[in-house]
Every structure is written in C-alpha cells, then in structure tokens.
Simulated assay, not measured.
Amino acid sequence: MIWMSEEEFENVVSDALDLIPGEVSARLKNIALVIEDDPPPGGPVLLGLYEGVPITERSDMWGIGPLPDKITIFRNPILSICETPEEVAEEVAVTVVHEIAHHFGIDDARLHELGWG
C-alpha cells in the first residue's frame, strides 16, 4: 500500500484525464468526475463507479437539462493495491478509461475483450 495526499491523488486523476484522446473527451458532455475516499459501505470494493445513463441508451427525447452522469474514483481502494506512484498512475488511468467506457455504453465483458479488464 502507498500513501498519497488528496492533492497528489487529484493530480494523478487530472493527468489520467489528459490521456483521453481529444475526440473522446469532446464527447464527454454533462458528466461530473469526483474523487471520494471510499465506496459506500457494505457493497463491493470498487476502484471507480459510473452512475448515469449510457449514451447508447438515450433517446432523442433525452430532454434538456438532465442531471449529469457521474464518475467517481475511489482513492483508498486504489492506494491499497498499489506500491508506487507509477502503479497509482496506471491504476487510475485504467479506472478512468473503464468508467468513461461505461458512459459510452461499453460493458465489462467488452472492456475485458479489449484488454481493459
């Protein structure tokens, strides 16, 4: 396990977002990315969580002003499985890509096929 301040972790998440290709990030509309220390108690241990309606499930009648989708990155679970800052950066990048993929309607099975499992 590695320790990293909240500010350092936020910088790692920001760096991971910078790795997202421009054509993908340009399609990220009405989505909030937040960092929390831990996932909700009593549930599975999560590194990240996408909450919202994937783009592939939206209709033309989606409406004006829907609540934003939300991607949460969980700091403590990621830090608990990493031993170096480089491992944290890699795990955060994979987690961010994984959750953004869910926003675009890509499920876990397809992510595994693509090597992002």
Rank of each mutant, 00 (worst) to 15 (best):
A93N: 12
L46Y: 09
P41I: 00
G63Q: 00
P85W: 01
S80P: 02
G42L: 02
G65P: 02
K70E: 04
L28C: 05
I71K: 05
K29N: 06
P77T: 10
D38I: 13
I64L: 14
P77F: 12
G65N: 11
I35W: 07
I64A: 15
L79G: 06
I73P: 01
L28K: 02
I71A: 08
A26N: 14
G42S: 07
E86W: 14
G65E: 13
M61P: 03
V53T: 13
V53G: 00
P40Q: 06
E57G: 15
V45E: 13
P68V: 06
P44L: 10
A32R: 14
L28I: 11
M61L: 15
A32M: 08
G65M: 04
W62Y: 15
L49S: 15
P44E: 14
E87K: 01
M61A: 07
L49V: 12
E36C: 03
R58H: 11
P85S: 03
K70G: 00
S59P: 02
E90N: 13
P66N: 11
I100A: 06
E99C: 04
P41A: 07
H98E: 02
V34P: 07
P66G: 12
V45K: 11
E86N: 11
R58L: 10
G43P: 01
P66Q: 02
I100F: 08
D37R: 13
I81Y: 10
A89I: 07
L79H: 11
N76L: 09
I78L: 15
I64M: 14
A26C: 13
K29R: 14
F74A: 04
D37V: 05
G43E: 10
V96S: 05
P39I: 02
G48Y: 03
E86L: 11
D38L: 05
T56V: 13
E99A: 03
E90L: 13
P54C: 08
L33I: 15
V96D: 04
P85M: 01
P40E: 04
P66D: 12
